[in-house]
Design a binder for these strands. Structure first.
Lengths: 220, 220
DNA sequence: AAATAATATTAGATAAATCTAAAAAATATG
DNA sequence: CATATTTTTTAGATTTATCTAATATTATTT
């Protein structure tokens, strides 16, 4: 089964929106995510339904199929492996990789991905801390919670970000937070939910609840 | 100026066919090279003419413009840099790289190519010995001649192949010829033009004129 | 040079992916 | 519950790249 680049992008968007725990994925949501019009989405949903990567009944809703899931995970795998390559080998900043990886993920060559995976030493997480599915689509997730949900004096390690917009990533870079940083909660302000943390046992950081809720931590 | 993937492929084909020293590039030649129909080529030539990357008068012929040349060289640069990456870093065999590089060359990101170039240590030649244009489109060629044109007892180094079909590259691999191999002409058979050479001062090789004419040598 | 062959172009169709505007269905509101 | 609003889909157009079949142009050959 072969998908076009556009189909792959739609399927990936559907997968991501499905994962967000929403009851069902709406045409409008997809349109927003992919930056297109609802009319185009309707059309594509019909096509994806025919290709049996989603189950689709018009006006009703959609559900991704096992086949669709597998294909989406392969695309995500490629995207994240390329992100690792760009950051680890070509020294891209983690907020510069998305657009390029968005293109690279559509390169068709199983051998290339196999070799790339080996070359990068079979990474399990991308630079944003998101898990990289293996060749069979299996994902190794880490149990994690939002930074603002941690208690005072708790210790952990930043493992991912929810919002990976360039602006947010640049902000994190600027204040010295990064994936892998060891942190400790020093104080929490009840009033506005803001938080004070210690990074790598040396740097103190204040952040709003808004920022903290977008940082995911592996507790220890 | 932005070119689509298809336009880039046509332009690259035109560039390559122009370089082959032919008086002019025919619609049929392009169709053969790109594996498409002459009707499609005519259509595309009109478009490329409008974009001023070629000068085109129908039924008459075409000529690549300075702008077209520059764009073609950038695509070739990307293609060859990716080939170096695939062979040097991902350990692809030199006959496995073409198809993948054909896809990778269309990734749009000047930063990516700049970084890739640095990562590969600014290579001047690709795995087939073809020169890699620099960021300005300048090409550093090596003076070279076909192996069958060398005289007995002459010494040199294999620097490129004319025919880079998978079949030919596999054959070369099999007999132990490779880009960079030092060779010496031991004997030439006048009757059929076949040739006997010494590879790396240890291995004797017989090859037909057909094969030898597809191997390019830097004389020394 | 006239007939034939080869080459190149146009005309008209098709497929993919998109759009706007209009219609249909589902949901929300008074 | 009837109406208004939102959401979704369809209809019809557009762009890109391709094809086949037909036509036009150029080249070759008696």
């Amino acid at each position: 089964m072969e998908l076009t680049t556009a189909e792959e992008n739609y399927l990936k968007a559907i997968y991501h929106l499905s994962e967000e725990g929403k009851k069902s994925v709406s045409t409008n949501d997809i349109a927003t995510q992919i930056q297109t019009k609802p009319a185009s989405v309707s059309d594509m949903l019909r096509k994806l339904g025919e290709k049996e990567v989603i189950q689709y009944r018009k006006y009703y809703g959609l559900q991704i199929t096992a086949l669709g899931m597998q294909l989406a995970l392969q695309t995500i795998r490629k995207h994240r492996l390329w992100e690792v390559f760009l950051v680890d080998k070509l020294h891209f900043a983690w907020d510069e990789v998305h657009e390029v990886a968005e293109q690279l993920e559509h390169i068709q060559s199983p051998l290339l991905i196999e070799r790339l995976d080996a070359y990068l030493n079979y990474p399990k997480f991308d630079p944003h801390g998101d898990p990289i599915p293996d060749a069979y689509g299996d994902v190794r997730t880490r149990p994690r919670c939002a930074l603002n949900e941690m208690d005072i004096d708790q210790i952990g390690q930043i493992v991912a970000v929810k919002d990976s917009s360039a602006a947010f990533l640049r902000y994190l870079d600027k204040v010295g937070a990064y994936i892998g940083a060891r942190i400790k909660v020093l104080d929490k302000v009840e009033f506005d939910g803001s938080i004070e943390i210690l990074v790598d046992q040396k740097k103190t950081l204040f952040m709003s609840k808004d920022v903290a809720s977008n940082i995911l931590v592996l507790q220890s």
